[in-house]
Amino acid sequence: MGVAAAVPAAAQAPAGEVTVRGFADLGFVSFQARDSFEALFGSSSAPAAGGGADVLMPRGLFAQVRISRVSRTGQRVFVFGGQAFPLDISETLTISPLQIGGGLRFARPAWRVVPFAGGGLGWHRITEEAGFSDESEIVQETVTGYYLAGGVEAKIWKWIGAAGEVEWSSVPDGLGQDALTVGAAFGETNLGGFTVRAKVLVGSW
């Protein structure tokens, strides 16, 4: 394949070899459900931390598994006519996506950085807990979505590298399914968002 033939040895798994590396990342996610998150948490973006592993395969292919976590604390609201009335009841949301996907790394002999692009599926484990909740009112469920991501990576020193990545994700019908929720009040149903993150890569290059 043309892509594989252009990749230098330093940035591409040797022909026929499969290598594994780990990574940790830190970033910010900006949710598509902007109004809902602003109403509940005062902001539609949140810091996100994660980590995972890449499996680098011949011909620039890679597979990836990543877990991450986003957590926000705010207060519950009542929404009427587009106005949110804060109710002074704490609301804690934790989203823990498990993403499995893959893509291609576009290495060139003259480039010190390697662009990459990929995508995959995400299973978003959600926990929503509010003040005065009883057991039956704690939400724990998983919703499914997909994502596309791309960025650049560079080797820094021996087996350590760094990467910058952007990700667009979509979780259709991930929220707003219950009529008495903020998402339904604002007509927002997608739990996805746009993420910018920095990664530290560790492993064989």
Binding site: S36, A130, F132, L175, T181, V182, A185
Partner: peptide, 11 residues
């Protein structure tokens, strides 16, 4: 109680 509890993201 439900009215006082208001709305969350999922419930």
């Amino acid at each position: 109680r439900n009215a006082l509890r208001g709305m969350g993201l999922f419930r």
